[in-house]
Design a binder for these strands. Structure first.
Lengths: 213, 213
DNA sequence: GAAAAAACTCGACCCCGGTCAATTTTTAGG
DNA sequence: CCTAAAAATTGACCGGGGTCGAGTTTTTTC
């Protein structure tokens, strides 16, 4: 039977991930050794490397599941009728809450997502694409409501806002932003800047006023 | 004499950095061991750790010198009379060229700068502040020329544009942008978006038109 | 000037991520 | 069933980052 082997492989993979989830959460990433992982999964150390190339890959696989869940959760809860800036804020703050739940996890994940190491960065791009899928309908609706320019490529809009999100999180990691509230305020500020533009407009006074309060 | 010891410490530190510069450049960061570094610097392995906490700290120290030089170079060459977007492009592309000269170096540096590990992220913030110092006069002039809103905190403007720079570089590391030209185009696009704003304006037609060409 | 105190240097050592040749398990053909 | 090839598993092993306490050098103290 062709299935016996494959089935067992799935089980082993799952066992590794389960062990990883438990040990990483309990003792942290660095403090967990591959040997421990193997022992907890009931296999030999070497075997792990026929399922994952590196330790960090195990971590990433473990994160991606959670991330996908969080995305679904967030989109489900988002209210399509709110103004764009409010929706974006809710979404990105939701993700920040997830990332900041464990400082170390978030850092490893973000480092790998933003500046990936393994050649094609394919893994990171997949997750990114999930992002784009999630945001696109929100942007489309905002365009219909006249809250977003229609002459822009949505992928560039996504990139723009994601960049601001990353910068805000970076501010938190750098110790410039201390509390969740600091983060929310900075993000709000940057999003408003992005929507209104940095250059003065003819309706400049109105924009300046809106930004103040 | 109080100086004998201190003087020697300076020398030793310099010797380590010199050895690091040579070996990292020649064989890469990962391929250079602390033992090699110690040998090249003519000291014992353990001694290195009384000058730097970790291997990556050596690398960072080595990078910071170079970065400072690059900043000075870039500001010296920048032409204060050019339009803001052009100046920004020149500046950030100059930095990208530096970062991309050695893919591995850039990645390590950026990872540490954007998502720092050691507690206060103080090192990263210093470099950041150099950035702000460098950009502030450019923004001030742009404001006088009416190219930049005057009702914004300059630090938020810096953060905004730096975020877009980081996102562009990330696109390069993720394999979405392949050549230097791809990077330049993406950056230009994002900067224009930031200046004009993502929301429609009353003078919307004009903005849309300008973005096209 | 001597000796105590402080600062510094060193390399053997520990731990861990990752490798690989040897061994066990599975599959397929007769 | 049996067997030989293929696939999977394993743990001893390797190289490197980082630690530590013993030994050395400099500074301070009297």
């Amino acid at each position: 039977m062709a299935g016996v082997r494959d089935q067992k492989k799935k089980q082993t993979r799952a066992a590794i991930l389960k062990a990883a989830m438990k040990l990483f959460s309990r003792q942290g990433y660095e403090q967990t050794s591959i040997d421990q992982l193997a022992q907890a999964a009931g296999i030999g150390k070497g075997t792990i490397y026929s399922y994952f190339h590196t330790k960090s890959e195990i971590f990433l696989a473990f994160c991606e599941e959670q991330l996908e869940f969080v995305y679904q959760e967030l989109t489900a809860r988002s209210n399509p009728k709110m103004p764009l800036r409010k929706q974006l804020l809710t979404l990105f703050m939701g993700e920040f809450r997830f990332v900041s739940r464990n400082r170390e996890f978030g850092r490893i994940l973000l480092r790998e997502m933003v500046f990936p190491k393994d050649f094609p960065g394919a893994r990171a791009r997949e997750v990114d694409d999930k992002y784009i899928e999630m945001l696109t309908p929100i942007f489309k609706r905002a365009q219909q409501r006249g809250e977003l320019r229609t002459d822009l490529e949505l992928i560039m809009v996504t990139g723009h806002l994601y960049a601001l999100y990353i910068m805000t999180v970076s501010g938190w990691y750098m110790g410039r932003l201390h509390t969740e509230e600091d983060v929310a305020m900075a993000m709000e500020f940057l999003f408003d800047q992005a929507l209104q533009g940095l250059a003065p407009t003819t309706a400049k006074e109105k924009a300046a006023h809106a930004a103040k309060k």
